[in-house]
Design a protein around this nucleic acid. Structure first.
Length: 219
DNA sequence: CACCAGGCCCTAT
DNA sequence: ATAGGGCATGGT
């Protein structure tokens, strides 16, 4: 299969996943940190604690007024709570410089903003790009572990460098926010179902066109 | 019991 | 430059 066909293939299998990352832009700022190496269910528990305590509105400003210890307690179910509380604190102090006005960030050029985010300790490329794509609606493609695994399994492409993978996708797909959001979501949902550590190629609709499946006689 | 999950930073070669 | 360890909860 060709990489440029991946989107329509996944669409035909899974339908539309739309704007796949749930929540308001403010919530996405938070969940982008919480979901680092953590399953989404635990992120939801942590967010529920936050919203139960702070309400739904203006959570960034409210969170930033809490101590790191207090934040750590609230986000406990998400795991790595001490380090994530610090990372959240640092992000919130950055946002405070803009009075928590995400519109101000949206007006900035993508590349400048990405550099600013990457300077924040605890925000790496994936977290930065998730914030850019889903919270700020900037056209940049998010690469995660599922994306790498799916590239390896289906296409036998093994790239270690984040930017290389991102460039690969962005050279095949035009810079469209909704397209990038949905393609990333589709990749994750597909990989979760069929490209787990114990692959389920037998149930995968792509097994005829999947390198891994063919290689192992599973198609 | 072991292993995994929508990463990132720090350290030792 | 890059491999390895630490961070921690909840599900399978």
């Amino acid at each position: 299969m060709k990489l440029e066909k991946l989107y329509e293939k996944l669409r035909s299998i899974h339908g539309s996943v739309g704007k796949w990352w749930p929540g308001t832009p403010e919530e996405i700022m938070v969940t982008a940190i919480l979901t680092q190496n953590t399953n989404w269910k635990n992120v939801e528990r942590a967010m529920k604690n936050i919203e139960k305590t702070l309400g739904k509105n203006d959570i960034l400003r409210k969170l930033s007024s809490l101590s790191t210890e207090r934040i750590a307690h609230l986000i406990k179910p998400a795991g790595f709570f001490n380090i994530k509380a610090e990372r959240l604190k640092t992000l919130l102090e950055f946002l405070k410089e803009y009075n928590f006005n995400l519109e101000l960030l949206r007006e900035m050029p993508l590349e400048n903003l990405r550099e600013l985010l990457l300077k924040i300790k605890g925000i790496g490329k994936e977290t930065a790009d998730a914030i850019l794509l889903y919270a700020l609606e900037k056209p940049i493609f998010v690469v995660d572990s599922y994306t790498k695994r799916l590239l390896l399994r289906i296409f036998n492409i093994e790239l270690k460098d984040y930017d290389e993978i991102q460039k690969l996708f962005m050279s095949y797909y035009p810079p469209d926010v909704f397209l990038y959001q949905e393609l990333h979501g589709l990749i994750v949902e597909h990989a979760k179902r069929f490209c787990s550590k114990k692959p389920k190629c037998g149930e995968c609709p792509l097994n005829k066109e999947c390198f891994y499946s063919q290689m192992n006689g599973l198609s």
